[in-house]
Design a protein around this nucleic acid. Sequence first.
DNA 1: ATACTAAACGGACTATGGTCCGCTTTCTAT
DNA 2: ATAGAAAGCGGACCATAGTCCGTTTAGTAT
Lengths: 201, 201
Amino acid sequence: MSSIPIRPDVPLGAPHERSDAARNRERLLNAARDLVAEFGAEALTMDALACKAKVGKGTVFRRFGSRAGLMMTLLSDSESEFQHGFMFGPPPLGPGAAPKDRLVAFGEGRIYFVLENGELLKAAGAATRNRFDVPATKLSHRHMEVLLREAGIADPWVMAMSLTYALDPERIVDDVRVRGISPTRLVDSWRELVTRLLGAD
Amino acid sequence: MSSIPIRPDVPLGAPHERSDAARNRERLLNAARDLVAEFGAEALTMDALACKAKVGKGTVFRRFGSRAGLMMTLLSDSESEFQHGFMFGPPPLGPGAAPKDRLVAFGEGRIYFVLENGELLKAAGAATRNRFDVPATKLSHRHMEVLLREAGIADPWVMAMSLTYALDPERIVDDVRVRGISPTRLVDSWRELVTRLLGAD
DNA sequence: ATACTAAACGGACTATGGTCCGCTTTCTAT
DNA sequence: ATAGAAAGCGGACCATAGTCCGTTTAGTAT
């Protein structure tokens, strides 16, 4: 029995990734990062990517499914880091603090995360019927749902959805970049929202 | 001086709409309503519309600017009605009730309005950099801002934006139609949100 | 080494929103 | 009625996401 290379993010019994596929994936990822770095995520077209990576267009879509899928892949590192922060990191973001404080910290972290990765996030959520299907969004929602339940909210699932949309990447990015609201104001308002929502101060 | 036909929704000094333009506008509106009625708003393509209205494609875009613009035009009647309700109608939706009650009623009204016009609203907000540029959205935002200020919220503008996104058409429609949440649950959760936000009952 | 198979490839093709610009029609002034 | 100007018209054209399918290639069994 020959040893199989370790591929952390692939489902267990997956039938082995062919070497040409691996090579092309690397090429595509590198090309995509270059293009985003140089022209921004919004300007990235799938044709340009295929061309720059010296790969057929079909290959791009086989690999990532859609433009949104590509953006999610590009995001996954920073996203994992943020997720790790609120799931396992130190309080108040991580476990150990009161739900209210964790929720405030979560929103604050999210706002800055979005401001750093705004273009990618907007592009990732742009595909029709996709905004909530992003796995990271599901996880955030679930996290908030748990905190809200602990804090005694009657319908935590729906309330978490309201808060999810209040932290929508498009909303945050446009507030700051188009409508000129400072990140601090957003964070303060989020704090006011959560504070009032989860019992007086 | 010859009498000029009355066109209620046209800016005062507008240079007179030509008769062929008026005729084509009618044709387009009728065709659009037919298509939406028969196949739904999502399925409406601008080519199909042009074709059905027996009009060139350029004419469609001259008239409405974009697909989103067309959808807004299609919405404008029901939208005006809803707007009239919260601006001039009887309490608790209209003036006369406490801000908290008006806000609860506003959200409830909005939820049902969205569920009736969901496809159109989603299509209207879909165009890039457009979600908040919809005049109706601005008006709703402003309305909530005023109520929130009356209720003593520190940063009513930003808070109104959070609530605007919490009532996002896509969110409401998908909660109900994709994720199986009942409208009642949405309304109840909105009530809980507003109630906690604006001081304990 | 050879043959076989399933996966991967690539690029032509489709669908659709939106733009452009030369031609036509309407209105107005005379 | 006529002519000139401005508004409107139409459909070819463009950009771009996403699909399709005949061809190539990497692994595997012999």
